[in-house]
Amino acid sequence: MSRTRIDQLASKYMNHDMITLHTELPEFPKGRISLLYTLLSHQPLTASHKDLLSVVTTLVQMGLDTHDMVENASGAAEVGTQGMRTQQLRVLAGDYFSSRFYHLLSQAGQIETIRRLSEAVCDINRLKMSFYSKLNQMKLNAEEYLHIGAELRSGLFLSFTSIMNGLHAKLWPDIVNRFSRCELLLQEIGRVERTSSLADSWGVWHILQEGSEEDRRLLADGKEDTGLLKSLLLKYEVVDKLGALLRQSTSQLQTLIQRLQSDKLMKELQPLLEPFLNATGQQRATALKELG
């Protein structure tokens, strides 16, 4: 299934005039959905249901991600009535996507899938509560940030492990977790390069962990100061460090995929790795150019 095909199938159940006109939605989880679809295509028990399972997983993930866009009450109050309406609409949009997920699976008699995905949502929400608590208390280090972030991204997809066969079931948890880590690292590089939403980025936690005492103090006191953040992220070469982590994770992911022992499956999965390989290749080219 092409990414365009996944978009089309999911959009059929997500489109709603009120949502489209009045609020933005989170980024579509194309990579993880394509990864899931490809593996399901190679499972005897799920191949005939791969479209349905991919679509409902998309709906649940979009519901979770849309709820994540809802700001806390004080933040919403600061942007006035329109801001409050936007936040309320995001809550409703997330609930709407979840309702479509239940409806589609119940119609298809996929009660066990409803149970597995619902349990995964509960686990993800518990993990989010712990994660946000650590964020607010400043009790987080850079590796924990990546580890928990990858767990949050892979949680729904891990629920399909039990319906995979043999080697696929054994390798799937590591593959989807490593893929999610690569996605997160690529997102973090983009955040630094665009200087957007830097306050709780990986770079901040890296500096708070590895920076000088003076820089840690400056950062703790001025996390909302974009100019300060940019200068510190540059000083500690955060983009280069993220690039190195992405190269490492991409290499590990390639090794895991090779262990699937299927040339056909490896060929189908290769396009999903291209964004990670391209990003690391561009960074290397930039570094060589600067050295030259």
Rank of each mutant, 00 (worst) to 15 (best):
Q137P: 04
F131Q: 07
K128Q: 07
N177Y: 12
E151T: 05
S133E: 14
F157C: 06
L135N: 04
M164E: 13
S130H: 15
S159L: 05
A169S: 14
L167V: 10
E143V: 09
S162G: 05
F131Y: 15
L167P: 05
S162V: 13
E183Y: 07
R153N: 02
L127Q: 14
L152V: 10
I163C: 08
K134T: 10
A142N: 08
V176W: 01
R181Q: 14
E143F: 04
A169N: 06
Q137V: 06
H168M: 06
P173Q: 01
S130R: 11
L171Y: 03
L140M: 15
L135P: 08
S154F: 03
M164S: 10
L152H: 03
Y145G: 01
R153A: 05
L171E: 01
L152C: 08
K128M: 05
G155S: 15
Q137T: 13
L140D: 00
E143P: 00
G155V: 04
L171W: 03
H168Y: 00
L158E: 02
L167I: 09
L135M: 09
S159H: 12
A142H: 08
M138H: 12
R178H: 07
L158M: 02
I148H: 01
D174A: 11
H168W: 06
E183G: 12
R126Q: 14
M164K: 09
M129T: 13
F179E: 07
S130L: 10
N141V: 10
P173R: 04
S159P: 01
S133K: 14
S154M: 02
V176Y: 00
M164H: 12
M138E: 07
L140I: 12
F179P: 05
G149T: 02
G166L: 00
I148V: 15
A150L: 09
A142R: 09
V176R: 03
Y132V: 09
N141R: 08
Q137L: 11
I175A: 06
L167F: 05
P173V: 03
F131W: 15
